[in-house]
C-alpha cells in the first residue's frame, strides 16, 4: 500500500499541492485524475523522492522510500528517461546492469508484443514507439508498484490500444499501479480507484465499481459533479 499523507508542495510562493492525502491499495489500479496542471506529476515525483515536499509524509508498505525501494517501486514518466543516443538494446542493458529486479525474459517478450526493433536508436523512435519503450523499461522490472505518468497522452490510437492492453495482461498481474491522466475514457473500465484532484487538493477518492453499484454513476458523472458543481 502506498500512503500519501497530507503532503504540501510549494514552488516559490505557489502551492502546487496543499494537503493531498490518498492511498493506493495493493493489487489495485489507482488513477489520479485532474483536468490539467494540478500537480499529478508532482505527486508521483514526490512518491519517488524526485522532488522534496514541504510537509507531510509518504509511506510505501509503511516505510519511507530508501535506495532499496527502487527495486520494488518504479516510475514511468511521460518521456523515456534514457539518453537519446542509446539504442533500445543499450537502454535495456543499462537497466539490466543496475537493477536486480530486471526481468530480461519479460523485456524480450514485450519487444515482441510491441513489435519493436532492439537496434533502433531512441532518438529516431516515433512518439508511439517511444512511449512503448518507456513502458517496457518500467514494466520489465519485477516491482510491486508501478507509477505511470500520462501513458496515453500524445500518441496514436493504435499505440494507445496496445498500451491499454498491457493493463489487462500478465505484465501488470499482481502489481499495484498508480496512473495519472486527464483523459479518463481510455481507461474507465480498467481502474479500481479514482482520485480526483484540483488546485492541489483531493476533491474525491472513490472505488469506481462501488460508485457504479451504489450510485449508478459513471466516473465521468462523478467528475462532472465534482468539477462543475
Amino acid at each position: 500500500m502506498i500512503e500519501v499523507k497530507d503532503i504540501t508542495k510549494r514552488f516559490g510562493r505557489k502551492k502546487i499541492l496543499n494537503g493531498v492525502s490518498f492511498t493506493a491499495n495493493k493489487g489495485e489500479i489507482t488513477c489520479l485524475i485532474g483536468i490539467n496542471g494540478v500537480g499529478k506529476t508532482t505527486i508521483l515525483n514526490a512518491i519517488m523522492n524526485l522532488t522534496p515536499i514541504n510537509r507531510g509524509e509518504i509511506l510505501i508498505d509503511g516505510e519511507k522510500i530508501r535506495k532499496e525501494s527502487y527495486e520494488r517501486i518504479t516510475f514511468i514518466p511521460d518521456a523515456i528517461t534514457m539518453l537519446p543516443s542509446m539504442k533500445i538494446s543499450d537502454a535495456m542493458q543499462f537497466m539490466a546492469d543496475f537493477y536486480q529486479s530486471w526481468n530480461q525474459k519479460r523485456a524480450d517478450e514485450m519487444i515482441e508484443f510491441f513489435k519493436l526493433d532492439k537496434n533502433d536508436r531512441l532518438s529516431t523512435l516515433s512518439k508511439g514507439n517511444s512511449a512503448k519503450v518507456n513502458m517496457l523499461l518500467g514494466l520489465a522490472l519485477d516491482v510491486d508498484y508501478l507509477l505511470m505518468d500520462e501513458p496515453f497522452s500524445g500518441i496514436d490510437i493504435f499505440s494507445r490500444e496496445q498500451i491499454a492492453d498491457v493493463f489487462t495482461s500478465h505484465l501488470v498481474e499482481n502489481r499495484s499501479v498508480i496512473i495519472t491522466t486527464h483523459e479518463i475514457s481510455d481507461i474507465e473500465h480498467l481502474i479500481d480507484k479514482a482520485v480526483l484532484l484540483n488546485d492541489g487538493v483531493v476533491l474525491r477518492e472513490f472505488n469506481a465499481e462501488e460508485v457504479r453499484e451504489n450510485e449508478g454513476k459513471s466516473i465521468i458523472d462523478v467528475m462532472r459533479e465534482v468539477y462543475q458543481p
Binding site: 495482461s169 473500465h189 480498467l190
Partner: peptide
C-alpha cells in the same frame, strides 16, 4: 480471469 480481463478490456480485479 486474466484472459477474460484482457478480452473485455476490464480491470482484472473486476
Amino acid at each position: 480471469r486474466r484472459e477474460l480481463a484482457n478480452k473485455l478490456k476490464i480491470n482484472p480485479n473486476t
